[in-house]
Design a protein around this nucleic acid. Sequence first.
DNA 1: TCACGGAATATTTTT
DNA 2: TATTCCGTGA
Length: 663
Amino acid sequence: MTKSEKNFRISYTDALNPSQLKAVTCTRGPLLVIAGAGSGKTRTLTFRVARLVEEGIPPGSILLLTFTRKAAGEMLKRASKLLDERCERVAGGTFHSFANMVLRRFSSRIGFDSSFVIMDRSDTESLIGMLRRELGYGKLFGAFPKKQTLATIFSRSLNKSLSIEEVILNDYPHFEPFMEEVLQLYRAYGKQKREHSFLDFDDLLILLRNLLAENQDVRSSLSRQYQYLMVDEYQDTNAIQAEIIYLLAGPEKNVMVVGDDSQSIYAFRGANFRNIMEFPKRFPGTKIVRIEENYRSVQPILKLANVIIDRAAEKYTKVLYTRKQGGVPPTLVRAADENHQSRFVVETIKKMVRKGIPYEQIAVLFRAGFHSFDLEIELGKQGLPFVKVGGFKFMESAHIKDVLAYLRVLLTCADRLSWYRILLLIENIGPQTAQKIYDTISKKHTAKEGINAVRPHKSYSKPFGRLNTLFQKLDVKSMSVAQLGEVIIEYYGPLMENRFDDYPKRMKDLEQLLSIMARYHRVDLFLADMALEPPNTSMDDVLFAGSSSDNRLTLSTIHSAKGLEWNSVFIIWALDGRFPSAHGLERPEELEEELRLMYVATTRAKEYLYIVYPMQVYTRGLGMASCTPSRFVEGIPETILQRQSFGRVNRQRFYSHDDHYWR
DNA sequence: TCACGGAATATTTTT
DNA sequence: TATTCCGTGA
């Protein structure tokens, strides 16, 4: 410690509990912080940033890596409020956005142009789909994996550091006969990316690791620049990310990682919570701090959470406790069917709101994006304002991607994927014609020249003329991002009208996109951001006219709810087969992850928690089928998880406990 | 060569 | 429910 405590502007000893304080003041050397749910992890990180800055460390030499860029931004903002605006100059973001920045700076070292394009998941799939078709593998005898599956296999191979062969043998043994073809396709995909200067999400990580591992000068330059590393959500990093941290750490090894092994929910993406256990081995002399006191939830909720996580085969090392008094046990609600489940949630929320709980303090959580469809309809009918997070994405909808395609070809004339998008929108141009036109265009260096060189066939010459006019107007150098957007939308509007019958709704999305564009002054940075951190809520999700943007309840996948908290939480579809999802039932490690997911969901609630499941579900083929509640919440004593019913089944009304607190 | 319709098939979570 | 493949007609 460079100064005595009283010389600091912030009184750390008053603001933090002893273990938090230890995590904050231990600023030198490797440090592992195990922080339970609701234990003030964000607070700890925030104070630690302020502390480092107060100790006189230049903000620019602190790097804070988090799971979303939003999380990093908020922490730095909070730190600024605590101390001063110096904290805003701390470098923060996700591994992917950090990689993006570094790789652009050192692009020549990795053999790429600095204006490389980042492919999101759907770009990746389209490109794979294109190659799959070209190579003719779709027509092979038997079922060749689809583009989506192929993308998953490729990604898993990198993120879990396994070969393609291993992934197929482990997870997709039924594709073993196609091993050679899949490998062929994988090589073609890699070649295509290199030729087009495309990087997918996984390339960002791999190339950053390779850059650091193979270029000693780059490595030491970066570790001199970032002398203090902080990594949030360490349980959800994979082997490559752990290696990046290792390579980035300078001789001082000022590396702090924070995580909670019982909240690891991204193994499907290659995350390995054992990274936490291995951290002290990689960094000898690591200090370990545990933060176990929970400030979020009332005791009855923690009790249930502890019972749930206790069912895990893996024994986690901490038990949450709280000094918060009061609270009522969470409730397991049996609803007659899916619609009753929705209606129960809506009814209860109405009662809560009447009692003074604001909408923004209420959330409904579920395993998968589509689980909320019926509820969304019900909320719309009743006029309750909500916002949906996770699941399908604004940025991935066709009309948004279409508009981005015009911008992308302005930067990279060789972007075949985007040219296909653009050309296929024109009547009478199909894949064959698009390829021919692309061949002509890609010989030129700019989109303007390229499109001018095309001699269109009569059948589409008129609409093609419009496209040509568009590209003569577009000029990256003299126009702002928003101006480019406006001209593009002017061209695209009529095409969209033709293509989609929900044209007005999509037009609103485009207006929204324009207002986002107005915040950027460089097209390449705008495009990179849209791929790395797309706005993850769709604008038309607000079914309630005139609701203010801040007073809405939240519908969210559990994955997207990570790190967040609400006064009242509903978990719906707590059915075996849905949650845990049928997918993971056979594999013990996947089932284990589902259990941790349930644990994460329950620990989001501060005061009230309902776990709801429908008794009967309509499934295609079977009609109405009875269901069993999730194994994660079955057989828990009523003193910990009380029971309630809602609706009627087979003409017999359920008995229902009195609705204790919302009457 | 394009557009469209029918049939078959697989269905999670995210940077 | 969306994707993908295949057949048919223009």
